[in-house]
Design a protein around this nucleic acid. Structure first.
Lengths: 215, 215
DNA sequence: GTCTATATAGCGATAGAC
DNA sequence: GTCTATCGCTATATAGAC
């Protein structure tokens, strides 16, 4: 096997297993067995398990976030179209790796949803650094498009959109099964339209007045 | 230590660690050290690590789902108040264990959000069984309240609400930090109002027409 | 019911031959 | 760059004394 291939093979297998099982539950032995490479190759090429996980994430996150910012910047100045902002935010990760639009791509990008919720301690700072700038820019764009919303509400709602997206990246196949196929996890286009419609409606919702605490 | 106390102590420590680290990353040694009990006591009282995890989850999920169904049943017949349905769904888990409403309770119920996304293989069937009935009843209630929505859209949107809730259970402290305290994860009342307003707006949003695939 | 001691297995990581 | 062999450690689980 050519040297460059080994590194890519390890990255691909790691991405697959991280998406399926998460970081803690995936062992390097299982990974190298599936990839058909030697155990020591992981340490030679990446330095260890933690560094490998960061490499897997960086390979996907960087282009996704670049694409998000590119789409956000392409919106007209003074944009008030909330749906367009949502679309710029959720479409790049949902389409990541989905070259064919079918399930193999869906599996590839699930690692994204997985690590967003697992967050092993050593990844927390790494992930926060990767996403903080993008979150700030989208929050600002949403605040401009929705001037009636105070900042706390804007942040909370962006947080909810991220949650809906992450949960979908992670669990949409279970929903396909539960609904007997009525919700098709492989239909990325339909999924995106459903999510954009829902998120836009949620972001535009009137702010609730504070309720009294129930007794 | 009295016998009954040992079992409870183990459950409490397990819940805490599962919430913080997840299933795979938590070892029985770490758990028993924190609980101040012997390693063998876990196997004596529960039979093993997997059975312990199921016991931790069942202790919280059963009363939460019972309370959800109780609140749903308490709504008037022919109910069209989407917000009331959402509230019946999200308030029990968000308030679970939050006796004081402060952060210790928030920590207790995070295990809920954690396992909803981690899903070790042996828990998948267990969790599906715990939640399937509740999900079906709430989907039916939403379909009644929102007759303009087709079934696939109703299921997708319920799925998004679950995602927003799970992500919040799991990560709201990170949001507190990111916003410099403007979003206070310890303020359960405010959180619930934000989530209910967002989810209701998302559920009521007009269904998107199908877009053409981008080139 | 609680403890010590241990069985059995798997882990990440590394040294050193090739 | 790739391999074998292994170190040092931790994991879950259990046997058996008390």
């Amino acid at each position: 096997m050519a040297p460059a291939d080994t590194k890519q093979t390890i990255l691909d297998a790691a991405e697959e297993l991280l998406a399926e099982q998460g970081y803690a539950a995936t062992s390097l032995r299982q990974l190298t067995a599936r990839a058909g490479v030697n155990l020591a190759a992981v340490h030679y090429h990446f330095g260890g398990k933690e560094a490998l996980a960061k490499a897997v994430l960086a390979r996907r996150i960087a282009p996704i976030n670049a694409e998000r910012l590119r789409r956000l910047a392409a919106l007209p100045a003074g944009n008030r179209d909330t749906a367009a902002i949502v679309r710029a935010f959720v479409e790049p990760p949902l389409r990541a790796g989905a070259g064919g639009g079918a399930s193999p791509g869906a599996r590839l990008c699930r690692v994204f949803g997985r690590v967003m919720v697992e967050q092993p301690p050593f990844l927390r700072a790494f992930l926060a650094r990767q996403f903080r700038g993008v979150a700030r820019r989208f929050e600002a764009a949403l605040a401009d498009a929705l001037p009636g919303l105070d900042r706390a509400a804007t942040w909370w709602r962006l947080h909810f959109v991220i949650g809906a997206m992450a949960h979908t990246l992670q669990n949409s196949e279970a929903l396909s099964h539960l609904t007997g196929g009525a919700c098709d996890a492989g239909d990325v286009d339909a999924l995106i339209e459903h999510l954009v419609a829902f998120a836009t409606g949620g972001l535009r919702a009137p702010t609730a007045r504070r309720r009294r605490r129930p007794a």
